[in-house]
Every structure is written in C-alpha cells, then in structure tokens.
Design a protein around this nucleic acid. Sequence first.
DNA 1: CACGGTAGCGGAGGCACCCTCCGCTTGCAA
DNA 2: TTGCAAGCGGAGGGTGCCTCCGCTACCGTG
Lengths: 193, 193
Amino acid sequence: MQPTEAPMSTALDTITAKKPRRADALRNYEALLAAAREAFAASGTDASLEDVARRAGVGIGTLYRNFPARDDLIEAVYVSEIEALAAVADEVRNDAAWPALTRWLDRFVDYIGTKRVLIEAMNRDSEVMAACRTAMYEAGGPVLARAQAEGVARDDVDVIDVVRMVAGVAGVQADPDQRRRLVDVAIDGLRAR
Amino acid sequence: MQPTEAPMSTALDTITAKKPRRADALRNYEALLAAAREAFAASGTDASLEDVARRAGVGIGTLYRNFPARDDLIEAVYVSEIEALAAVADEVRNDAAWPALTRWLDRFVDYIGTKRVLIEAMNRDSEVMAACRTAMYEAGGPVLARAQAEGVARDDVDVIDVVRMVAGVAGVQADPDQRRRLVDVAIDGLRAR
DNA sequence: CACGGTAGCGGAGGCACCCTCCGCTTGCAA
DNA sequence: TTGCAAGCGGAGGGTGCCTCCGCTACCGTG
C-alpha cells in the first residue's frame, strides 16, 4: 500500500506514457482519439479505422503507429470513462450500508446502461483493462464489505461477482424502464436472507 | 388458440418453408447449414461466409441464394436449438412451484451458458427470432405464473423480464462456478419478499 | 426415353476494410 | 541555420462482402 498522500497511480498513466512527444504528433494523437470516440459512439467499436483516420484528417499509417491494434485505440478511448465509473463508489461513502450498496450499483448501471460498448471494453482481456477492473473492485469492495459486515448483504459473494452480475443485467437489450426493473430484482438477490 | 391436437406451428416451419425443392439444391442447402454450424462454433457468428461456402463445397453464389443475409444463415443454424430451449420449461411441469421455476432457469442457463452465440442469436431482431422468443415466453410463462399465484415469486415481473435477466447474467464472461453463483443470486431476487 | 424450360450453380469482379512498409517531411536541439 | 530522427501518409497486397449473369443439369411432360 502506498501512503495516501502519494499521487494515486492509475491505469490512465499507462496510456499517458504512450503519448507522442512532438507537438505535431501530439495534435494528431488527440485528433485520432476524438475521431475514434465519435466513430465508436456512432457505430460501435468495430467502426472502420480508415474512417477514423479520415475523420481525424491523418493518414492511416499515423493511426496504426499510435495504436498498433484496434484494442489499443479502444482502451485509450474508454479508460478515462471506466475510471470515472470506479469513482462512483466514493459518492456513497456516507450512506447507510444497504442504501450505499444499491445507490452505488444504480449509479453504475446508469453510467454504463446506455453504452454497451463500455461493458464490452471493460471485459476486454488486456493489461490496461485489468488495471481498470482492479481499480473498480478496490473502490466497490468496501461498499459491499460494509453491507456484509452489518448483515444486510449475503456474504457468499464477492465484489467481482456483484460487478459482473450487475454488468450482465445492465447489458441486456431492453428499454430503460425494464432494465431498471431487472437490475432491481438482481440487486435484491444480494440481500441477506 | 388452436386445438391442441393440431400440429403445433413452430418457428421452424418458417425456415423449413424456405428449403429448396430440387434434390441437388437440397443437398447444397444441408451442406451449407452443416458447414455454417461448424464455422460458427469455431469462430463465432462473424466467421467468413466465403469460408463456409468453401467448407460446404459450393460456390459463394449458392450460399447467398439460400441465405441472402448473414442473419438468415444464423437463424437457420440456431432456430432448432432455441426451440429446444423453450421445451425445457416442460420438464418441470410436475415440480412444486418454486423448484419448478429455479429448475427451469437452471436448465436454461446450462443450455445457453456455454454458447454465448445462442444468446446473441436470440436477441436478434427478426421475424423468426421473434417467433422463437414468443414460443419461449409461452412455455415459461405458466411456470412463473404458478410461482406467483402461490405467492413464492414476486409478482412485479413478467416472464420476459425473467428470461432477459437470466440471459444477461448467464452471458457474463466467467468460469462456470462463478456463473452458477451469479445466476443463483439473480434468481433469488425473484423470491416474493 | 428424350427433351425443353427453368431452378439452381458458381465464380469473376467491384467495393471496403485491414494492416505493413518505406520514401518523404518537418519539428526541434544544438 | 542546419542536421537528423521522429513522424507522416498513402500505395499496395491480402481478405471478406455481396451482386450479377452466362452456364449446367434436374425433372416434369409427352
């Protein structure tokens, strides 16, 4: 464990370290990221990379130099959003144990419910995403642990179970009302019996 | 409602009606289906269609004549499996209300858990798949209704909710143990409080 | 059985995308 | 100002998608 004063090391750092150093190159890098975010939002993460390069106004070669694989680009686009997701757990620090748990998960669902790409991105098998997941588990773990310690949440599940289950339910194709209902049912399953 | 003696009309019929009539054409049709099943199992539903045609030993044109869109091929491959899925609900007809519900859903999860493609296929937006879903809801509806009537299942959900939720949880990337645990939690959320 | 019409065949071809490679350009340190 | 390496970008080879249409061979009819 690091002393809390030290700047927290995040998965973002891993990405930032890869940014190019020259001014023109940096401009291109940012343009690519913006174009990719736009394209992924419009057509999912399998949008055409040539199209991304075109939108960004750079050559395809430049895209591939900055992001050798499609996954690298996806990660760069979504890492910051996923980190924000982890931060959601902090918002409920002062709630009572069970409401804290439900509010955390509800916020979580609100956040990812509309963008299925985020769930996919989160499940991606890569170093960076693994770091993201860890961050998320570390943030949510205490919320669950508190509810379990107070006996309001069943204790045969861990935080990974909870996040996976909720993400699974949140990812179903359904209108927002139905999704909310499904998530509520699933969360209800977490109550201590 | 049809009298029960009449042969039940199934989504399969819609597919069967599209089979070619000439002997050589029928052979090709079956070969394509077999090749596609194999290819989809190996590389998912985005396997190369040219490869499917090659494996089947027919020209690419033949594939496209029988299955004008990729989805048509996917449907033809999976419709029968999804119908089997609906039949699972019949197995539990004689169980007590709550065990019937849990057993139905457990069997359901066993069936689709390993093949994510099936879940995807099921959510596909098409006439045939809609018929499949309807069949499934009609099979599972009574199981849920019985549990609700006896007051052991919460009554603010319908069968569509239940199937969607369970399918969502069953689709998460996880080892079988974890998946089983997650599904149990979610199903537990269905208990009347 | 012979034969004609037509259902069905299959692959060439046009298009889009993937990714690599390498000769040219340009930012920046000295 | 200048030299050079970091960076550029697009041509090109490969693969897959899907359409189109001249040819093949099944099968109903006489």
